[in-house]
């Protein structure tokens, strides 16, 4: 009964993967259909030495680290806050969770136009009210703007997971520590944080997997620009293969993206695999 699921996933994994690897060693440019044949490592060479490659790698890392920093630290603080007793807990949880369900294209366009637009955006209106000028977020700091958009979508995820982990913490342990005179800080460091370590690991790894492949937000806002300022690896693969029609080079970029994701996946799988033991 497992076989249908295994079969389709096997095909889904092996066929495109094999084709990507195959194409990455072929001369295959839709603009020059007569140039074919084995290309050796030429595609990889051209992809890596492309002037857009280095910025793309750095932007990919900055994007991942930027979003992770905001969502993980913000998520821990928010989870700690929402775990306290207060009026309207259920409603606030719903409010905090909401951005996670907003589709990436909506989130990106709403932030770009209604908030970050230098003329009509809400931030510009607020700046003008204080005698300032509208700031061109996507023109001046495109990557930072995209980090804000993506972090807004993923902060709810981190908060929810960490809150769930926090709520499974044994209350009596905290109370015992409190009675023994442990300060808020040492309670956090010695009891709460160790309890949340696994959840934090999972949050970081899962988000990394998703944020490594951020694409829609860039497509609808900056298209990777200005210049290469907000270009990341998936977007460069798209530019090379679909826009520049160089299938071979795009495939080589795809292989590099797969290798990068697999390094993260390796650690994620270990963290999740441990859970199956018991």
């Amino acid at each position: 009964m497992v076989s249908p699921a295994v079969a389709v996933l096997l095909i889904w994994m092996i066929v495109p993967l094999a084709m990507t690897i195959w194409f990455s060693f072929q001369q295959y440019n839709l603009l020059y259909p007569d140039r074919t044949g084995f290309a050796g490592i030429e595609n990889y060479y051209y992809f890596i030495t492309d002037f857009r490659f280095q910025p793309a790698i750095w932007n990919t890392l900055r994007l991942v680290l930027g979003v992770l920093a905001i969502t993980t630290i913000g998520g821990i603080l928010l989870a700690l806050l929402l775990d306290q007793p207060f009026w309207g807990q259920g409603i606030v949880r719903l409010l905090v969770l909401a951005p996670f369900f907003v589709m990436p294209t909506v989130s990106a366009l709403v932030w770009q136009n209604m908030f970050m637009d230098p003329v009509n955006g809400l931030f510009a209106h607020i700046a003008k009210a204080f005698g300032g000028d509208g700031y061109d977020f996507l023109g001046q700091s495109p990557l930072m703007s995209i980090i804000i958009m993506v972090a807004w979508q993923w902060l709810p995820f981190a908060t929810l997971i960490l809150l769930t982990a926090l709520q499974s913490l044994d209350r009596e342990q905290i109370e015992a520590a409190e009675m023994d005179g442990a300060s808020v800080w040492s309670r956090f460091i010695y009891i709460i944080l160790p309890h949340m370590t696994r959840a934090i690991t999972v949050v970081i790894l899962i988000q990394t997997i998703f944020i490594l492949s951020v694409y829609a937000e860039i497509l609808v806002t900056t298209n990777g620009g200005p210049g290469t300022a907000s270009l990341n690896l998936p977007f460069l693969v798209y530019l090379a293969s679909i826009v520049d029609n160089d299938v071979g080079m795009g495939a080589a970029g795809g292989v590099i993206a797969i290798i990068l994701a697999n390094i993260v996946a390796f650690f994620l799988m270990r963290a999740i695999g441990k859970n199956l033991e018991h």
Binding site: P16, L17, T20, P234, I242, V247, G250, A251, V255, M269
Partner: peptide
């Protein structure tokens, strides 16, 4: 675990073959 690993494959990595197919 193997099924999970297929989820880790970045879409950009297989964009080219899927698009051509």
């Amino acid at each position: 675990m193997w099924m999970l690993s297929t989820k880790m494959m970045p879409a950009a990595g297989v964009l080219v073959p899927i698009y051509l197919i």
